[in-house]
Amino acid sequence: MYTLRRWWDRNGIRLGLIVAAIACSWAIRQTQGAAIFELYQFLTRPFANLAIPSEPTKDVLTQELQQRLAELESQNRQLRELVGYTAEQPNEGIVAPVIGRSPDHWWQQIILGRGSQDGIRVGAIAANGGIVGRVTEVTAHSSRVLLISDPTSQVGVTITRSRFMGYVRGQGANRVIMEFFDKVPDVRPGDVVTTSSISRRFQPGLPIGIVESVNLNKSPAPEAVVELSAPISHLEWVMVYPLPQAAADPTNLSAEDEPQESNALSQPSGSQSDNSDSQSRGEGF
């Protein structure tokens, strides 16, 4: 008993500290570092420009094009309603400043200075001129976005000109690789790539980037290198859009997006939008 007591006198405090340190670190791990990110957000607040970037200098041509785009969008919406297409509400975005990057080089993440108090939820989409990524963690005043350039994030996409489909996966830089479902897709450099209607985590039609080069001989499926239109490596702020209806299902919250094979590439994409179960992919024809 005496030896035990002496041992305790000598090592008790040390043991307590060890247990406390491990308990703390485990707690931080289980809460996804929420406390640290909250503190980080608090400390960086003076430096982050929370103000919405003042109306970017538009020249006359851009303004005209924007107005025409708005006109075409509204026409498109009316036509879709006429043919009985499920109407989607154009939703408002939240401007969020980027206050940090990934705390480790193996993951491509950014940290935003707005969180659940500002209406951001897990699964929301961050965009800035093109898709940036998906919100994966939210604390009260900060949120973490898994970038589209992360190797674990996959998105089903479409070539807007020819409607050929495939999926993109991250390459860790400002480029992503698009793999086609078809053996001989009609694609050439300069084509615009957008999210496809079979993607469950992203609304269809969001811009992703522009095809930079094509490799049709790649096995097992042809590949194209897509240059992202969002300036992923030097983002200062992003727009966060509330999650689409299909992604509200909590079982869908893992990092990857499962695209499905599509044979009917030229038909209107609306006919597939409700068919969300993924099939095997990449077999081609």
């Binding site: 060890i18 340190a21 491990i22 703390c24 670190s25 485990w26 931080i28 791990r29 289980q30 809460t31 996804q32 570092g33 640290i36 990110f37 990934s102 705390p103 480790d104 193996w106 993951w107 993440q109």
Partner: peptide
């Protein structure tokens, strides 16, 4: 080893727990 373990857990929380740091 203990210090590495502790800080590794914290970094797991801040990025992604698999694979562990």
């Amino acid at each position: 080893a203990l210090a590495g373990l502790t800080l590794g857990f914290i970094q797991d929380g801040m990025t992604s727990p698999s694979p562990t740091h």
